[in-house]
């Protein structure tokens, strides 16, 4: 059931860890990505890095959604 897995005061669970991934990629990766001189299709690498980060974020959130659903089913 949807309601059972996160009570109102329920804090962070281990299965929420993938939610940190977008931060590691899109924030933590900035110092490195900004220094990469490679220009695929002449585009700044940082721009492509952050675009990839958007997709990574969706995938990470989808993964947590699956983990939440599995935990709720148990």
């Amino acid at each position: 059931m949807d309601e059972a897995d996160s009570p109102p005061s329920g804090g962070l669970r281990r299965r929420h860890l993938p939610l940190l991934l977008p931060f590691l990629w899109q924030v933590g990766g900035v110092p490195w990505a900004n220094g990469v001189a490679w220009r695929p299709w002449h585009m700044p690498f940082l721009l492509l890095w952050e675009l990839a980060g958007v997709v990574i974020a969706s995938l990470a959130i989808a993964l947590v959604y699956r983990l939440d659903a599995a935990a709720a089913a148990r």
Binding site: L12, H16, L19, L20, L21, P22, F23, Q26, V27, N34, P44, L46, L47, E50, L51, G53, V54, A57, S58, A60, I61, V64, Y65
Partner: peptide, 20 residues
Amino acid sequence: GAPATLALCSVSLAAAIGYW
């Protein structure tokens, strides 16, 4: 130029927090 990439971080990071 490059500072505009802020836009690409704004929605995804907010969604990661928003999910919880």
